[in-house]
């Protein structure tokens, strides 16, 4: 079993629902985004350098098989599970940020301050809270906690807490365009494997040799 994701750029409408769902479900602190959707070529947000260029690219942890972040971590806080998911043990990370220097995809987020200070900075109305309310442990390692520890690195955990309850990740369930699919990449007959084969699935930065478990399907045409 190798858990992977396929994102169909033909179906992506650039609504950023996945980024929002991810941020809310995972109680991400101020300024942290595990999931971002970019418009390649744009200066800002949705605009494109030329109208014929307009398409959208969601980017989060690529759950690489040859993951540089796992190899650089001096204490094994970042590790790979049996199904290839790259997780961070919140209780072991020493906050050296070596993994952030190592990651070519820029998906790792550091907690520069405490969650409380960050929320204060956001000036949310009193009592507004969001996020999966329970801490989640996998093999007794804390891989999710609604209250964040200051000074550690975090990133997409493939919604390990939902997976344990048989649910797909929040971004997959929240996608209005049905652009996201998860499945077993080791199984050649799985839906995701077939999609990659039939629709020219590609990965980001193949030249870096990271072998991501997140694949993209190219858009047939773009928004104009």
């Amino acid at each position: 079993m190798r858990r992977g994701m396929v994102i169909d750029l033909e179906k992506c409408i650039g609504c950023r629902s996945c980024a929002v769902a991810c941020k809310q479900h995972n109680a991400q602190p101020a300024g942290s985004w595990w999931n971002r959707v970019v418009t390649p070529g744009s200066d800002r947000h949705l605009t494109a350098s030329a109208p014929e260029n307009l398409y959208f690219l969601p980017i989060h942890c690529q759950h690489c098989q040859n993951a540089p972040c796992v190899k650089v971590c001096p204490v094994g806080a970042t590790y790979q599970t049996d199904d290839g998911t790259v997780l961070i043990d919140f209780e072991r990370c020493i906050g050296c940020r070596y993994c952030m220097a190592a990651c070519p995809y820029g998906v790792r987020q550091f907690n520069w301050e405490s969650s409380k200070d960050g929320i204060k900075r956001y000036e949310y109305q009193n009592g507004y809270t969001y996020g999966y309310p329970e801490p989640f442990r996998l093999d007794n390692r804390l891989v999710y906690s609604p209250v964040r520890i200051k000074g550690i690195v975090e990133k997409c955990h493939f919604c390990a807490h939902y997976q344990a309850r048989g649910l797909d990740p929040a971004c997959v369930r929240a996608c209005p365009g049905k652009a996201r699919h998860v499945g077993d990449l080791d199984d050649p007959d799985s839906r995701v494997s077939q999609m990659i084969r039939q629709m020219n699935g590609f990965t980001l930065l193949p030249e870096k040799g990271t072998r991501p478990n997140v694949y993209y399907l190219p858009p047939k045409r773009k928004e104009v």
């Binding site: 494109a48 260029n53 398409y55 690219l57 990651c103 995809y105 820029g106 870096k208 773009k222």
Partner: peptide, 8 residues
């Protein structure tokens, strides 16, 4: 590190 030539 993540730079790309936008499709097209």
């Amino acid at each position: 590190p993540l730079t790309l030539a936008p499709l097209g």
